[in-house]
Amino acid sequence: MNAVLRLVLALFAMLAAIEARADELRPGYMELTQETAAEWKLVWKAPILGGLATRARPLLPDFCELKLDTPRLSGPAVVATGKVTCSRPLEGATVGLDGMEPGSTDALLRVAPLGRPIQTERLAPGSSSFTVNAVPDRWQVARTYFVIGVEHIVAGFDHLLFVVALVLLLQRGWSVVAAATAFTLAHSITLAGATLGLFGLPQAPVEATIALSIVFLAVEIVKARPGEPRLSERVPWVLAFLFGLLHGFGFAGALREIGLPETDVPMALLTFNLGVEAGQLLIIAVTAAVLAALERFAPKARRPAVMASTYLIGAVASFWFIERIWA
């Protein structure tokens, strides 16, 4: 067994061990929902990996009392719910997480006052608290959802592998640009429509088909022959557009889990989509740079590296597809 094959098998074992459901957000999640003038419901979800489950805990002002139920295990996270009783409104008060150490996973904070706009904030080590505003800042919403969009595609392994496979299939500058533009346009359409409730698809079939789309690209790469362009190479924007429609439903499923601020739905939707695009461009740039470096410094290794990566991508995506149809 040569070194390349050993590397492929090792990477496959590593990635297959990750439970990578399409569009599942990896950060922690804390939600405060007001039920009466003095009472709030708290939901705290902490991933087992990343340190939040063992070290972090909800941070509330002194005039609030928290009664937390017994935590339970839900998939790869610990989930706890509880009641918060406050002697005065939360406006102007600080909420967040205590115990977020360097290296901890980030968390999304969502505050939903009774009859008033929802506020969201990204919590991270060094900025783990948030001052509740009487009226949410539009730029705070934009910043939060843009970062979520970037992290969603970069940390969402299925979308990441799809974009990488698209670059490996086309490899030429303008073809990649055309396909990426078509993919962007398509998933923007379904992301907006599904998020706004205009249409939708069940999430489970969407997740399975997203994995299958990656398998399809891997097969196309393997079957590609110089001077004999396949349909996916001749009209890549058509392929990218069709699969982009599907991936847009996946993005919408993630955005529904987060929720949208009631008064800034267009801003949140726009900046989430822009974040997704920024992450997508980053993935394309890195993949293209690696291919260019191989072509310049080790041209004989370029083809074997592409094929090894393709088989790895196809194997992992096949594993995800089987996992999702049986889930």
Rank of each mutant, 00 (worst) to 15 (best):
G193P: 00
L42T: 10
A186P: 07
S188F: 12
S127N: 15
F130Y: 15
P125T: 09
L49P: 00
V167W: 02
S127H: 13
R225A: 08
V84E: 02
I322A: 13
V8F: 07
F243P: 05
A288P: 05
S232T: 14
A77T: 14
D106R: 14
N133L: 12
T81S: 12
V141N: 02
S128D: 07
P226Q: 14
P27H: 04
F130S: 00
L9Q: 09
L160W: 10
A3G: 13
A179C: 06
A308N: 06
I210N: 06
G149P: 08
G197T: 07
L66N: 13
A289L: 15
A80T: 15
S213T: 15
G156C: 08
G156M: 10
V141H: 01
L109D: 01
V215S: 09
A285L: 12
F321N: 02
P58D: 00
T85D: 05
R116K: 14
E220H: 03
L170G: 05
P261E: 00
V235G: 04
T310V: 13
W237N: 11
H159I: 03
V206K: 02
M100W: 07
S129M: 08
E151L: 06
L42P: 14
V306F: 02
F251T: 05
P299G: 10
A38C: 06
E65W: 06
R296W: 14
G92I: 01
L291R: 03
G156W: 00
G193D: 05
I214N: 05
T271D: 02
E151F: 03
V219P: 01
V276H: 01
T184H: 06
Q140W: 05
L294Y: 13
G28R: 00
L270M: 09
L60D: 06
G227K: 06
I48T: 12
V276R: 01
T94L: 08
A155E: 12
V147I: 13
P205K: 07
L231A: 14
I322M: 13
V219H: 10
S175Q: 09
I214P: 02
Q140R: 11
I48Y: 11
P261M: 04
F199N: 05
A293S: 14
L109F: 01
P61L: 01
E207M: 11
Y29M: 02
A293C: 11
L282C: 09
A182I: 08
E228C: 12
P136Y: 03
A315N: 04
A16S: 13
F216M: 08
G51S: 08
L170K: 05
S128L: 01
A252S: 12
I322V: 15
E35C: 06
F249I: 08
S188L: 09
D62L: 15
M307A: 07
L239W: 06
G103R: 08
P58F: 04
I210Q: 03
K45Y: 08
A179H: 07
N273G: 03
A317Q: 09
E121W: 09
E19H: 12
V306C: 07
P61N: 08
P205Q: 13
A293P: 15
T33E: 12
A180T: 15
